[in-house]
């Protein structure tokens, strides 16, 4: 589950990207029009007109309610995000509204003034001057909306995970990048959730720092087979002294979430790996449902051989 927020400049193809992503993912799409139509049902036409015209009106308390229009907007967006598998939010300051959520991807779509001008001129059949005026107005409106509701500057780089310039990128190319990021992010969040257990120490790092070349090569082999992995995601305490202090622990090298499997690599001869075997057995006894396998030297060499045959 993830929320993709798209902040876009007028004429940047941001709306086209949002529509394309929504159809690719088969998910909900919240636009300004959608929000006005569905989120403020009980409001009068005059209230809706005021909301359309002035972002500051969002800070007013709703009629017969204790919450503001902004609160209502946030509430509706959060509910939709919680209830959907994926959700795309275009504009509405989504990049700020969802900035605290781990599962959001905040995308900004822009283009050079000349590109945007020519797109808008073509789309609305207006001349360059009129197109530029339309762009300036739209940019100002977007900026004012976010600063009025959230007291943030829409141009702050830190609001975005991905920034596209569509001068030289197609909608499909931008979408591919968003989808690839979404895939990785959802996977990472899933793995992090799966490996959180009270009794063990979770120490997932953002980037794997391998202890030796064998581990690095093994990671490449897993990558080659498109098998998701985490490097040393956790430490299992396996022995304690009388005072309850941990005296022995085991941190398997890899975790393969799809197979719910921990792998410990050893390049020592098999007869010397008794200690590792013992530790692995103990983890499986103490933490039921945890699978640990030892990757012996010959297994690794055979996989590495196959890997080299493939050109690795």
């Amino acid at each position: 589950m993830a929320v993709i927020t798209i902040s876009r400049q007028c004429g940047s193809l941001g709306d086209e990207l949002a529509n394309y992503l929504a159809s690719k993912l088969g998910c909900g799409l919240v636009t300004r029009d959608f929000a006005f139509e569905h989120f403020f049902d009980g409001s009068s036409d005059d209230d809706k007109r005021q909301l359309e015209e002035s972002p500051k009106y969002f800070l007013k308390t709703m009629v017969d309610s204790e919450i503001t229009y902004k609160d209502k907007l946030m509430e509706e967006l959060t509910d939709m995000a919680d209830e959907s598998s994926n959700l795309i939010v275009v504009g509405l300051g989504g990049c700020v509204a969802f900035s605290a959520r781990q599962d959001s991807i905040n995308v900004k779509v822009g283009a050079s003034l000349s590109t945007r001008k020519s797109r808008v001129a073509r789309q609305y059949n207006v001349d360059d001057e009129q197109a530029e005026s339309m762009l300036m107005t739209a940019d100002r409106k977007h900026k004012r909306f976010v600063s009025s509701l959230y007291d943030r500057d829409l141009n702050e780089d830190s609001l975005y995970d991905l920034v596209f310039n569509t001068d030289r990128l197609s909608v499909e190319e931008c979408a591919d990048a968003v989808l690839a990021m979404l895939d990785r992010k959802v996977q990472r969040l899933k793995i992090a959730a799966q490996t959180l257990e009270e009794t063990s120490m979770n120490h997932q790092t953002e980037v794997a720092v391998f202890k030796n070349e064998t581990e690095e090569e093994f990671a490449k082999i897993l990558d080659m087979y498109n098998i998701d992995w985490m490097y040393e995601p956790k430490t299992f305490p396996i022995e304690w002294d009388e005072a309850g202090n941990i005296t022995m622990a085991f941190s398997p090298d890899f975790f393969l979430p799809k197979f719910n499997l921990y792998l410990e690599l050893t390049t020592m001869e098999q007869k010397y790996v008794t200690k590792k075997n013992k530790k692995a057995r103990k983890v499986m006894e103490l933490y039921p449902g945890t699978n640990v396998r030892i990757v012996y030297k010959k297994d690794f060499l055979e996989l590495a051989q196959r890997f080299k045959q493939f050109g690795g």
Partner: peptide, 13 residues
Amino acid sequence: GNIPDTTSKTGVV
């Protein structure tokens, strides 16, 4: 089989 891939010098299966 192993297919060359732009994101990996080893290709992917």
